[in-house]
Each structure stands twice: as C-alpha cells, then as structure tokens.
C-alpha cells in the first residue's frame, strides 16, 4: 500500500480556502483578519514545515526505523490497520496536546499556535518551529513500537493535520449532530479562547469524544463570545519572537532559579507556575474569575 504525502497535496487547497475565507470576511463581515497577523501565521507555518528538513526528519526516520525492528505486533498495511492507526493517533494527539497545555516545556512549543488574537484559517498554519521533532520522538514512537509502519503513521499524521485546518474558522457556526463525535469550529473556538471558563478545554484533534471521555470538554456558550490569544498577548508580529518568546522566558526563569524544585517547576510545572505563586496558572485564572464573578452584583 502506497501512502501519499497528503500535507504536500493539501497546501494549494489551504491557500485557496484562505483566499475564500478572506473574500467571505470582506463580503459578510464575519471573522477577523489582520495582514501582519496573517503574514506571521503563514511564515510560522512555512518554517514549521521547513525546519525539520535540517536534520530533524532524518533523526525521526532513523529512530522510527530502529524502533520498528523491535515492534510488538506485525500490523499489515491494510485498510483496517489505517483506520486503527488513525484512531490511536488521534488519541495520541489528544494527550500530546493536553500535555502541551499543562507542562511549560511543551507549552513553549505550542504557545506559538495560540499567540494570534485572531481565529481564521491562517491561524491553523501558525505552527511551532521547535517542537515537531521532539514531540514526534516522545509521543509518536510508541505507535511505531506497537507495529504501525512509519509510512502509515506519517500518512495518518497528515490526515489529522489536514482535518484540523478547516476547524480554525468563525465562518461556520454549529454543525448539529456532527458535533457529538467530531471536533468542529465551535469546539475548537473554545480551545483557542482565553475566557477563563474556556481555558484548558477541547484538546481533541479529530474526535471530540476524547475530551468527553477524559473530562475536558466545554461547549461553546452563545452568551460568552470567545476572545482569542494567550493570557499575556504578545506585542509583536515578529516570527522569531513568536517562535522563541516562551523559550527565552524559561531560560531566564531557570537561570534565576534558587533550587532544583524551582527548575523543575519552571520547566515541567504548569505554564504560569512560580515558586512564590505570584504568577497565574490557568487554575488560578479560573479561581480569580470565579471570585470576581461571585462578588459582581451584575452577574
């Protein structure tokens, strides 16, 4: 069974759909676009595809080829295996994505994707320059060990990535029964929102059932419009700063750490962790929001 490079094939479709969304934004006023934001997202996307070619892909390929020699099962390249691989990869994606939000070292790579205050198809392409190889080694290698051929894995990774492209839009509202099983624009708008009630929710790639199973599903509330970005929005569109901002923060924090506990907290703690608790993690932001809401007579 031959597995095409579906991401490469999809690039012209991505470009075409962004043009369609731009036209729809202009004609209907729905959604939001800002030229410099779009440029930054597209440059980040190109960089994320380009950078692994400088050694990272070769490393991944070498590791996966070696690990495949020690596979637990001999899984054939059959259609049912592709479906199984897709489902397991989607579960793998859920956990990678969740860890990427809950542990700062992984957040440093993923924050790039959330750094835009916009939510449109170009935002989907705003991807990390620093995480794909490391994430691949840690989170995808177990599937190779299980017995899925690396080529099949690359194929389903591509399908998952392509699926996640179209859900980055404000043009599509709700999708009826489709939303029960699948990740949709509505579910993913919640994921990109910084409203306290929406923080750390809807990590799904394709199937939203993972969030429902693991207790992280939050539906979009029509009364609370999502506000996109990160809790400390950036003051720049410079792609290099977008790529490395959080890494610089980690390096500064680790350099100032007074103990091993602090080093661990600054790297593997929740984003916003600090030794004295003076910074805000998602949990603290939610607590603060609940306190303020309880005190507000208007609410």
């Amino acid at each position: 069974m031959e597995f095409p490079d579906v991401v490469k094939l999809a690039v012209p479709v991505f470009i075409l759909l962004i043009l369609v969304e731009l036209a729809a934004w202009k004609l209907t006023g729905r959604g939001r676009y800002e030229t410099r934001d779009t440029a930054a997202s597209l440059i980040m996307g190109m960089g994320s595809e380009l950078i692994p070619h400088f050694g990272g892909l070769a490393l991944l390929s070498a590791v996966w080829s070696s690990v495949y020699q020690f596979r637990i099962f001999d899984i054939p390249n059959a259609w049912w295996a592709v479906i199984l691989c897709f489902l397991l990869d989607d579960l793998r994606y859920y956990w990678l994505h969740r860890v990427a939000h809950e542990r700062r070292l992984f957040w440093a790579t993923h924050v790039v994707h959330h750094s835009s205050q916009h939510y449109n198809l170009s935002t989907a392409l705003r991807q990390t320059w620093t995480g794909s190889v490391l994430n691949g080694l840690i989170f995808k290698t177990p599937l190779v060990l299980l017995g899925f051929h690396p080529a099949m894995l690359a194929f389903v990774f591509g399908l998952n990535l392509i699926y996640q492209f179209w859900i980055h839009t404000e043009m599509i509202n709700r999708m009826g029964p489709f939303e029960i099983l699948f990740n949709t624009p509505s579910h993913h708008r919640v994921h990109h929102a910084t409203n306290p009630k929406y923080l750390d929710a809807n990590y799904a790639g394709v199937l939203i059932i993972w969030d429902k199973i693991f207790g992280t599903f939050v539906p979009e509330d029509d009364a609370e419009k999502p506000r996109y970005g990160i809790v400390k929005n950036l003051g720049t569109f410079n792609p290099f700063v977008i790529a490395f901002n959080e890494w610089i923060g980690i390096i500064k924090d680790v350099a100032s750490a007074k103990s091993l506990r602090d080093v661990i907290g600054y790297t593997l703690g929740a984003p916003g962790w600090s030794p004295d608790g003076s910074r805000l993690t998602s949990a603290k932001i939610k607590d603060r929001w609940a306190r303020v809401k309880a005190l507000s007579p208007a609410e």
């Binding site: 470009i15 731009l22 934004w25 779009t38 190109m46």
Partner: peptide, 19 residues
Amino acid sequence: VSLAGIAILIAVSWLLGAM
C-alpha cells in the same frame, strides 16, 4: 511555491483592507 502562496495571501489581505 510556498513563498509565492504566502506573498499572494498577504497581498490579497492587504488589498482587502486587513492592515
């Protein structure tokens, strides 16, 4: 091709008044 695509999208968004 990617660079050309990016250039087109940036130009179109600018022409549509997104700056």
